[in-house]
Design a protein around this nucleic acid. Structure first.
Lengths: 219, 219
DNA sequence: CAATCTATTTTGAATACTCAAAATAAATTA
DNA sequence: TAATTTATTTTGAGTATTCAAAATAGATTG
């Protein structure tokens, strides 16, 4: 059994990997994601490399092996199913479930996890719209536009929020920009660094590009 | 925050304490309960004594301080609420929830715990009939007879099973001796080491005294 | 291309937990 | 009471994880 620390490293690696075209995560980025000093990440990654969970290229970065990726996806499945469970069954607010799930994801057995999955009706996405890996470790990542680079004038739907900060999520909630909401981008002004969007029944809202980039949409 | 190891020591100490009239648990018993070698328990208990959670009397035993007891009761509350939750909400079998709860009891926040408590309707006992400590850390332990020392001929009700072994619990289930079941002790024979009990709609059943002692009843 | 800056790795040390085995104290038996 | 048995404690060492700070490699800049 991997320890919960190992599970966390693998998960962070998985999440960080897509931000780098070659999937090679620099040590510093991993250390930041794990909230440890760089030396700690180096030590840990060497150990994970010895266990065959990652490929480590000194001074350039780390990448998950297929085995490490499967484990990471399993952790991510637990995390996201737990999040949805906390919202749907226990009634917690979607802005607070991420933190709770950070602990619970390591304590849930396969048996309990599959019960939760069943109780929720085999959901495809968590409360933030993040896709839930399947039991067999598949994750169909859809390529989505964000409000910062969507086509203007088209009717769209909020699909996913890629920021777990409770304050931001509460703001998103107040605006009504939660997954499922219908929106249309009225204007994107790169110079003014803003996006103007129209929300069904709610009217106009102006977001900075950084914020807008966190709201993913599909049509 | 106490580590989950510390929480386990405190919980085992609480459970072991009532088996000793003075509440002083010998090191060996604690070590066995924790599944560690005696030396490990000694080391750990010294650390807990330094944190003010236990009183340690070298060569005679350990006792929880009031602070340690409160923490132990909090852990026990989590454990037992989780057990009931796993049975009632997720539909696990009562024979398997103890093991699951051993992990989960350390990962559940107060917020989630109180949601579970609410969802279950503020239950008083877990699936085995073990009482659930209150939020404020009170545990009303009722003095119950067991099938091995109950009065014969009286109509009784199974209240609690004091053994978490899945095989035993499955046996209890097959017999219909689960909490709530109506029973009457027909005969207790100390020499033959058996108890004959009559179960409503089920007829007679014969148990050895050791097994009978694990079935607690009230009237 | 040498000097500097930045990212990474190494080294040494700490914490929390564990075991094996030797030492010791207390209890029991003879 | 002396000898033996049993319970407990001590000692030395190992694993997993972390940090601080020094050393090093690579990249950048003048």
């Amino acid at each position: 059994m991997p320890t919960s620390t190992v599970e966390d490293y693998l998960k962070q690696l998985y999440l960080a990997q897509r931000q780098f075209p070659d999937g090679l995560v620099p040590m510093g980025k991993l250390a930041t994601a794990m909230q440890v000093v760089p030396g700690t990440a180096t030590t840990m990654i060497k150990a994970l490399a010895d266990s065959g969970l990652v490929n480590y290229e000194p001074r350039s970065g780390v990448r998950l092996t297929p085995g490490g990726e499967q484990l990471a996806l399993h952790v991510l499945r637990r995390h996201r199913l737990v999040e949805l469970f906390l919202v749907k069954i226990l009634g917690l607010d979607w802005s607070e479930v991420h933190v709770e799930a950070e602990e619970l994801e390591h304590a849930i057995s396969d048996k309990v996890l599959e019960r939760i999955d069943h109780l929720l009706g085999h959901p495809k996405v968590d409360p933030h719209g993040d896709p839930i890996p399947s039991k067999s470790g598949d994750l169909p990542e859809r390529a989505l536009r964000s409000l910062a680079d969507a086509a203007t004038g088209k009717n769209l739907r909020v699909a996913r929020i890629i920021d777990q900060d409770p304050d931001f999520l509460q703001f998103v909630d107040r605006c009504g920009l939660t997954p499922g909401a219908k929106v249309r981008v009225e204007a994107i002004d790169a110079q003014a660094d803003h996006v103007i969007a129209r929300l069904e029944h709610r009217g106009l809202i102006t977001l900075g590009l950084t914020a807008a980039a966190k709201i993913l949409v599909d049509d």
